[in-house]
Amino acid sequence: MKTRLITVAALLSSTVSAGAVSLDRSGQSITPLFLDGNQVQLSFGFTDPSIDGQNQAALGGAPIANVAESFVTAGLAIKYQFNEKLSFAFIVDEPYGSDTFYVESPVFSTLGGTGATVDSTAYTALGRYKFNDAWSVHGGIRYQEISASVTLGGLAFNTPGTFTPGTATGVNGYSGNFGSDGAFGYVIGGAYEKPDIALRVALTYNSGTTHDLPTVESLPFGQISAPGATTEVETPESINLDFQTGIAPNTLLFGNVRYARYSDTDVQPAGFFGATGSSLTDLEDGFDFSIGIGRRFNEKWSGSISAGFSTEGDDDLISPLAPTNGSQFIAIGGKYDVNESFAIAGGVRYTFLGDAIAAPGDNPVADFESNDAVSVGLRFEYAF
Rank of each mutant, 00 (worst) to 15 (best):
G246Y: 01
A270Y: 05
A229E: 15
F243I: 01
T276L: 08
G274C: 10
F309S: 13
G308Y: 00
I247A: 03
V233Q: 06
L219E: 13
S225L: 11
L283M: 14
S218M: 06
I291P: 00
F273L: 11
G303D: 11
G308C: 03
V216D: 06
L252V: 04
P220H: 08
L213S: 07
I293T: 07
D242A: 02
T245L: 04
S310Q: 09
G246F: 00
T231F: 09
F309K: 10
L283V: 08
G246S: 09
Y262A: 10
F273V: 14
S310M: 08
N250Y: 09
G271K: 01
L280W: 01
Q268K: 15
Q223K: 12
F297D: 12
G308W: 01
F309L: 15
L252A: 03
A307Q: 03
T311E: 06
I247T: 03
Q268G: 10
G228W: 05
T311W: 02
E312V: 15
A270I: 13
R261L: 14
N250C: 05
I247P: 02
T235C: 11
A307M: 13
F272Y: 13
S263V: 05
G292I: 00
F309E: 11
L253H: 00
D266M: 13
G222Q: 10
P249F: 10
T231C: 06
G294C: 03
G246N: 05
S225R: 03
T215V: 11
R295W: 08
I224T: 11
S304Y: 00
T276Q: 05
F221N: 13
N250P: 07
G308P: 01
L283P: 05
L283R: 01
R295L: 04
G308S: 04
A270P: 10
S304P: 09
F254D: 00
G277S: 09
D242R: 00
G271D: 01
G228A: 12
E234L: 10
F287V: 00
E284F: 07
S304D: 05
R296E: 15
F309A: 11
S225V: 06
Q268E: 14
S304A: 15
D288Y: 05
T231R: 02
V267C: 11
Q244I: 01
L241F: 05
P269N: 07
F221P: 06
N240Q: 07
L252Q: 03
S310V: 06
L219V: 15
I224M: 10
T265K: 12
I247G: 02
L213I: 08
L280F: 06
E237W: 14
